[in-house]
Design a protein around this nucleic acid. Structure first.
Lengths: 325, 325
DNA sequence: GGTGAAAGATTAATCGTTTAATCAAAAAAC
DNA sequence: GTTTTTTGATTAAACGATTAATCTTTCACC
């Protein structure tokens, strides 16, 4: 490994001059700067981040804490974060908080021990990690008051609802995944807000609710809106098995636009997070905080995008579907 | 931040003694060790990894390079790697190689610049990253000769084939995703090897191949085996649309056991990677390499697990399915 | 009691980078 | 021509932890 000192000796100057030349600080004649830069490049000099970190107190590393790395959205978030971070010469250290709040705290501490300059936290559902002693940005939902960036889950829910309403559906089943999750509640709240009171909205929670679907449809429901694509796939399978055809007999929607949404038939109408923008804003904000700027406590709310595919259609058939079995 | 020097001053001893007491090296009386440890704990002392890294040349950080973080397997691999690494007091820095070989090289260099102690690389399909100047383990496929850990994709293919054969299927369609991918080729090779020559095996590559499926089934094929769950879902949708019922008319299999495999109906017979073991072996091997052990070049091949669900069934009906449209 | 060894601590150097303080020489000002 | 400024470079200290070398005291042994 080439060090600054070696370059200095090699060129017959002091280490300080080399450092100044390379970082653009201090006073060095311009042709000396040129020569040093060239020589450093030729020798393949790479600054030691450890040395720099020790001196400056900054590691150039951000920590990413995820409630569950198997969260289907994680890869995309991680990808964009790592991309944006790389642009800014920052690294991303990951930590899995393994599904429980204790582990979340430990994961945060592990990252702090490593001296990360900032934290990006996607909190466990139902938890709000306390204030850390490093700059922190929460990525989750608008319900988090401060320092947070999130998709507008409620707005996404509203979009779905308005889409369904505009297709003429008057009796809709809303299937939620998990009441504990802040995100899920926001989605559901948005859905509710998107329908006007004249529409018959039937709210069901949890997977066990799938069993009630067939009879609800027999009673006149013409659309099922869910709070996750996986749930939608499950519903689709269940309905198909019972002879109910999507979208002919009933319209169906998901949430998140996971990869398999286009592999289904019919392809799934859903709502997508602008992960790219979320990642960008999160890191941008975090960097400002790291640079010592005092930002107003706020939630950056990123609009979701309605993706209309083939699982939703106009409510026009007056005939109830025949149910098999 | 509490430093060793502060503890030393606080207790009226030298910094070296504190360091020796905490690391268990050198010669320190046992009651001094006790007292120092207690005081360090009370003061909330956390060693500076930057200081340690500078002195020792080791950062305690491993780099993880992924061809595409949106790879559906990534989250699980990352999760287990981060878990195992955390147990060993190691951190994991991620880097996305963004789908092309150039970016892969850059990603590796970014990690090297950060002084990672070792690299875990899931290579771009079709590429074999050259020897690095830090210990490296490749996670991918048995086709990689050295320093690699992988699922036994060929073995998984064989399991699927044998399962299908044992159910009595004599005319099988093999649908492969991407010929360029080493992994995909290994899977297909395993499948071929699992059938005896008497079985009529029809090999099709790429998504466009899906269109040929219906006529192939009309010509007597009773099973479709694919090299990915996503492909299987797509096939399932296509067949359902054409009035072909899985598994009644045709058996269907996937590969990888992604989360949606149990959300489909019928639930998908597939083959699962033991990600946990792969991650464990990879890090174990990497740590040995980092500790300077010279390991024999070898590929650790982790057996896959056949997951039999409801999309495969005995071939017994002699009646061809009626095809809609 | 004198010698040697062992135990328990300290000193000082080192890792690579940054930066405030200093110094010498050249340029500008009077 | 002398003083002041500016320029361009150097010196030295610092970040925090580790460790080889050194020193002092205690103890064991003959």
């Amino acid at each position: 490994m080439t060090t600054i000192k070696q370059i200095a000796i090699d060129m017959g100057v002091s280490a300080a001059t080399v450092s100044n030349a390379l970082t653009g600080k201090g006073r060095v004649s311009s042709d000396m700067v040129e020569r040093i830069k060239k020589r450093a490049h030729d020798l393949g000099y790479r600054p030691s981040l450890a040395g720099r970190a020790l001196r400056s107190g900054q590691t150039g590393i951000l920590g990413l804490v995820m409630p569950d790395l198997t969260n289907p959205l994680f890869p995309r978030i991680a990808q964009h974060l790592s991309l944006v971070a790389a642009d800014r010469q920052l690294g991303i250290l990951i930590a899995d908080s393994r599904g429980n709040p204790d582990e979340q705290t430990q994961a945060i501490n592990r990252l702090l021990d490593r001296g990360v300059d900032g934290l990006l936290i996607v909190p466990q559902k139902g938890t709000a990690p306390g204030l850390q002693n490093v700059p922190t940005v929460i990525i989750n939902t608008a319900s988090d008051p401060d320092n947070s960036v999130s998709a507008d889950h409620a707005g996404g829910g509203r979009m779905i609802a308005e889409h369904i309403a505009s297709l003429g559906h008057r009796h809709v089943i809303l299937l939620g995944e998990d009441r504990v999750s802040e995100v899920q509640r926001d989605r559901v709240a948005g859905m509710r807000a998107g329908f006007d009171p004249s529409i018959h909205l039937q709210e069901i929670w949890g997977e066990s609710g799938i069993d009630q679907l067939v009879s609800a449809i027999q009673n006149g429901a013409t659309a099922v809106i869910t709070t996750s694509d996986l749930l939608a796939l499950r519903v689709h399978s269940h309905l198909t098995r019972n002879g109910i055809v999507v979208p002919h007999d009933v319209s169906l929607t998901g949430f998140d636009d996971l990869p398999f949404a286009i592999a289904m038939h019919p392809t799934l109408t859903t709502v997508a997070q602008d992960v790219e923008q979320i990642a960008g804003l999160a890191i941008e904000r975090l960097i400002l905080e790291i640079q010592g700027e005092t930002l107003p406590a706020q939630n950056a709310n990123v609009a979701m995008r309605l993706v209309i595919r083939n699982s939703t259609t106009k409510q026009n058939s007056k005939t109830k579907p025949e149910i098999l079995q």
